[in-house]
Design a protein around this nucleic acid. Structure first.
Length: 443
RNA sequence: GACCCUAUCGUCCAGCGGUUAGGACACCGCCCUUUCACGGCGGUGACACGGGUUCGAAUCCCGUUAGGGUCGCCA
């Protein structure tokens, strides 16, 4: 399916990729993919003083991480370039001349301003509906500046020019631009251009209702990667902020969201960002994803932690037993480290609570002996042996389970004990149990 | 202040003239499980307020209030 729909994400590289910006990009991308149109990335770097290379990179990284591929723009090419406003000087000059020759501009202290026709402007917004703006009062709606005394261009002008030049059919942007739209409409009219259709989407606020800014928790897209979120989970959550499939489902494949997505179904209310919900969705994704995907996503965190796992194959059974236990990928290293080293650093609290008990050393030795004698090393045999051992020793199952867990992993929390023992292997399990028993006996 | 947008559980969404106002997160119980999670069952919890319209309003209209946005030689 293809269409003539052309939409764009036009960030200004002055900070990091923010969830609000990512959501705007996402909705544009969804609409392009839904309609079979074209998604364009345009970098609005007209403010030389505030633009940075890192911020531009963060935009690329964030969009790629979320899987929002663009069809035209930096790296992608396209025949409507260049895609950096800083490289479009000649185009702006041409449009500027057109406006000036048409008598729409006047100079004011070296800056150039656009003379508003001072009429009422009607916007047929695809998500907000029909809105009429009365721009007749110059006190409340002053003429906009389009060019600085130093020759630099102002957002309103270059944004409109580029949307004309790049053939945009729809402009999907944050509601913070809603009040700017009548000015843009005046510009389109003065330039004799057909304006695109507009769709203003609600803003994302903090839990307390305040506007989300770069400093707020959860604001930076890069932060989600660092915190161990799966990109598909964050993307799913972002889709739900202002849009829904209308049938109470929340975890949806992106392909299905693409097919269901429509601008008219976007909410009108600002939404506040709920980190708890995003966290839960991430857990759901981790739970539901394939072992291969889990491995692929976990690897960077494992490598960063410097765990010497040998081969990917060695990682597979270990990751398989912790996958449903964790909610964040950055927890993976801590959950698997003791599978790949004997240099365990025991958790002091766990040792104190479960190992510093009367008779622990003896019980560990007794179970270690039984385990050593085992012919088949599997979950069923391990469980059976432990329970039989507890019976013979006259203790509760827990009196063996907890010390064993701490002895072999150094932690009180981990995967299912029997699965953990199975993957660890007889040799290491027996050795660690005996070593711990010796330590406790001599302590 | 002017203009614009918005108003359903604490949060995110359903609802679009007649529902015991539904789901999810969070929270609180219970079950499962001698770890931690997952899962299951149940519970607390909302139509901002005031006027209309209508036989009947969460749903339509007006006002008030509240929140957000815009009013830059930022984008």
């Amino acid at each position: 399916m293809s269409s003539n729909v052309r939409v764009r994400f036009a960030p200004s590289p002055t900070g990091y990729l923010h969830v609000g910006g990512a959501r705007t990009a996402l909705f544009n991308w969804l609409y392009a993919r839904h309609t079979g149109g074209t998604f364009i990335l345009r970098i609005e770097d007209t403010d030389k003083a505030r633009n940075t290379e890192e911020a531009t990179q963060a935009i690329y990284d964030g969009l790629r991480w979320l899987g929002l591929d663009w069809d035209e723009g930096p790296f992608a090419g396209g025949d409507h370039g260049p895609y950096f406003q800083s490289e479009r000087e000649a185009i702006y000059q041409r449009y500027f001349d057109q406006l000036r020759d048409g008598g729409h501009l006047y100079e004011d202290n070296g800056a150039w301003r656009f003379r508003s026709p001072r009429k009422s402007v009607t916007l047929e917004d695809l998500t907000c509906g029909k809105i009429v703006f009365d721009l007749s009062n110059p006190m409340t709606h002053p003429d906009i500046t389009i060019r600085r005394p130093d020759g630099g261009w102002i957002f309103h002008f270059v944004n409109v020019v580029d949307d004309i030049e790049m053939g945009m059919t729809h402009v999907i942007r944050g509601e913070d631009h809603l009040s700017n739209t009548p000015k843009h409409l005046e510009l389109y009219a003065a330039l004799g251009a057909e304006p695109p259709r507009f769709a203003h989407i609600p803003l994302i606020l903090n839990r307390d209702g305040s506007k989300m800014s770069k400093r707020d928790q959860g604001a930076s897209i890069a932060g989600y990667r660092e915190a161990g979120y799966a990109p598909e989970a964050v993307r799913n959550y972002l889709c739900l902020l202002g849009w829904s499939p209308k049938d109470n489902r929340e975890i949806l494949e992106i392909d299905e969201i693409v097919s269901l997505f429509e601008l008219s179904k976007i909410n009108r209310r600002n939404a506040s960002f709920d980190l708890d919900k995003c966290y839960w969705i991430n857990g759901q994704y981790l739970l539901g994803m394939s072992q291969e995907r889990f491995l692929e996503l976990s690897l960077p965190y494992i490598d960063a932690a410097g765990i010497n796992y040998g081969s990917r194959e060695a990682l597979v059974p270990v990751l398989a037993i912790i996958k449903e236990k964790i909610k964040h990928l950055n927890e993976v290293p801590n959950w698997i480290s003791y599978f790949f080293t004997d240099a365990i650093e025991p958790d002091a609290e766990a040792v104190e609570k479960t190992l510093k008990k009367e008779g622990v050393a003896g019980r560990l030795r007794a179970l270690a002996d039984r385990y050593e004698a085992l012919d088949s090393w599997n979950v069923a045999a391990l469980e059976e042996t432990l329970k039989a051992g507890a019976k013979e020793l006259g203790v509760k199952n827990g009196d063996l389970i907890h010390p064993t867990r701490v002895a072999v992993s150094g932690r009180s929390v981990g995967p299912s004990l029997y699965h953990m023992l199975e993957v660890l292997g007889k040799e290491r399990v027996v050795a660690r149990m005996r070593k711990t028993a010796d330590e406790q006996a001599s302590a």
